[in-house]
Every structure is written in C-alpha cells, then in structure tokens.
Design a protein around this nucleic acid. Structure first.
Length: 310
DNA sequence: TAAAGTTCCTCGTTCCGCGC
DNA sequence: GCGCGGAACGAGGAACTTTA
C-alpha cells in the first residue's frame, strides 16, 4: 500500500528536521532560523547538515552578502513542506476544537422519563438549529450508584441526568440543571378539587406514588413524617409520565413535579392544587466522568443541556 | 522476568577557524 | 565584523547485557 511506503519513508527521517528546514527556508539565515526555533546557531547548522545528508542536496548555499540561497531542490520542497506542517498543526489544534455545525456524531444520555420530558424537546430544538448532524440517544438510567458509575466509566453513556445524590466517587463531576416544585393533581370533578386542600383532607385521600426504584418512601412522606402525619399510598408506578394518566382515570391523588403537571393537566383534564404542606422540592443534575471532562464535544453537549434546562 | 549496570548513540553546546 | 560550519565535549536516553 502507498500509505505503508510513505510511513516507512518517513520513519527513516527525523521529522523535527523538517521544522528546521521550514524555518531555514523562511529566514534564509541559519542564525535567525535558530532564534525562531529557540535553538542555537550551531545546533541549527548541524540540523541543516543532517538534512543535507538525508535529502542528498545542499538545500541552502551561501550567496552574496552572507545570505543563504535555497537550491532548486529546496525551492521545490518549500511549498509542500509548508502546507504539510500547516496541516499537521491544524490537525493537532483540531483536537481542541469542536464544530457543532459540521459535526456528525451521536451522544448518549442516561436518564428517566421525567428529565426526558423536560429536557429533550428544548435540546432537540437547539440541535436542529445549531447542530443538525448531532443525534441524541436517550438510554435507561441505572437504578444503583454503582450502575451509574459503570455507565459513565465504560463510555456506555456520555452524561447521566438524575437527582444530585451525595457521595459520588472521585472522578465524577456534577452540574445542577434545574429545580422543581411539587404540585398536587386529581381528576377534574374529584371531591378534593371542589375546595381548598387542607392537610387533613390530603392525609385522608388515597395517593399514587411514583417509585422508580420500586421502594416505599418519598420526599413527601418524609415531610409528612416530620409533622407526625402520614398518608395511604394505594398504588405505585415506576414512571412519572404514567402517573397523570392513572390519576385521570381514578380517584387517586398524585404529588408530582410542576413541569410534568403543567404538561399533562390540560390534555388529561386534571385539577391542579397547591400542596397543603411545606415541601422542599427536588432538583436534577447532570453527572459525567473525568474521562470526558475536558473533551470539547462533551463540554459542548453539557452546555447545550444547561441551555435546554434554562 | 525484572531490576541494575554498562555501552553506545544522538543532540546540543562551546570554542574557534574560515570565508565573504 | 558577521555568520557558517568543524572539532571536541558533555548530557541524556535508548539499547543491550548481566544478575538475582
């Protein structure tokens, strides 16, 4: 193959000498070329000597008034050499840039249905305008911290979006995305929707709980317990987007994040009520691995997720 | 097989001679 | 006087050998 021949030819040549030759051809002066390269004149002179032996040509010969004059071989080499070095410099610098308008690649984001509902529409809108070659694949979020770490460290996903839990291991980074408040919802026509919701009435109702991990307890139950109160959770679902549909078809009340309530209330005919107790709300953050921390494309993705969340 | 020791090579520097 | 290039030297590292 031609490439193989080229590589073997180049392997016999000290490529640093080509940088010296480029400087010599530009300056036509060994001392000035050496200064440009940060080396001494003799070192540059020796490099020129090695170039002469390697290429079998004097390359630069002494002319009148001390100026070094390139030979025809050197003049023939100059344009290609300049272009090749410029290309190399560009290739090296290119690793530090990311052009979203021209890029074609797929990002993988692991999260749940809640963050998908909140973030995906604005994110895809941004991508359609500014990065038409970028695809986004949403993947299921691991339910354990070890699983999330494995997803990130293996490269299976680029970013994880979820609650900003404490105690992440070293090598993971976290950036808050958005905060969320709670709203209560019942079907329109539900007796609870006819008057103000008191804490007593709230505790007396049957509730629907979204439990992605399938375990009991929630921020709401913790807040009730702090007041010495409790509620009956009559049913659980594992996905947030299912909850409004269940509420619309039953007499259950759900206490959900405001964004999902706002999206579902009108289409499903739900009544929205303020919670009758102080609830701290919750938040989402994106988490990524040190492996991708400095990658320009990944940094761009994280910036777009932050824009979508805002 | 890995660590330590030895040899050899490359490269850069200083010094100095030579040519323009 | 300026600048190029050769000779000599030292530093650093690669490659090779020896040893435990």
């Amino acid at each position: 193959m031609q490439d193989g021949h080229d590589a073997r030819d180049l392997s016999a040549m000290d490529l640093n000498l080509l940088v010296v030759l480029d400087a010599l051809l530009a300056e036509r002066h060994v001392t000035r070329a050496a200064a440009r390269l940060g080396m001494t004149q003799p070192a540059c002179s020796h490099a020129l000597g090695r170039l002469r032996r390697a290429l079998g040509d004097p390359l630069l010969v002494r002319g009148t008034r001390g100026a070094m004059v390139p030979t025809p071989r050197a003049e023939a080499l100059a344009p290609g050499l300049r272009a090749a070095l410029r290309g190399l410099a560009s290739a090296i610098r290119g690793e530090a840039r990311f052009d979203p308008g021209a890029a074609r690649r797929t990002f993988r984001i692991a999260t749940g249905d809640y963050a998908e509902l909140v973030l995906l529409p604005p994110l895809l809108s941004l991508l359609a305008r500014e990065a038409p070659g970028i695809d986004v694949w949403m993947l299921p979020l691991s339910l354990t911290q070890e699983g999330v770490v494995a997803q990130l460290s293996s490269g299976a996903v680029d970013v994880v979006i979820g609650p900003p839990r404490r105690g992440w291991p070293e090598g993971l980074y976290l950036r808050p995305l958005f905060d969320e408040r709670f709203r209560c919802v019942v079907r329109r026509g539900h007796p609870a929707a006819r008057s103000a919701l008191t804490l007593d009435r709230y505790c007396a109702l049957s509730h629907l709980l979204v439990a992605p991990r399938g375990t009991p307890g929630s921020l709401v139950d913790d807040a009730l317990a702090a007041l010495g109160r409790s509620r009956r959770v009559a049913a659980t679902v594992s996905h947030f987007l299912v909850a409004p549909h269940v509420v619309a078809a039953t007499d259950l009340m759900a206490t959900l994040g405001a964004r999902i309530v706002d999206a579902a209330a009108a289409p499903l005919g739900l009544a929205v009520l303020p919670p009758p107790l102080e609830l701290a709300g919750f938040s989402f953050a994106m988490i990524w691995h040190e492996r991708t921390h400095h990658d320009p494309a990944q940094r761009w993705l994280r910036d777009q997720l932050a824009r979508a969340a805002s």
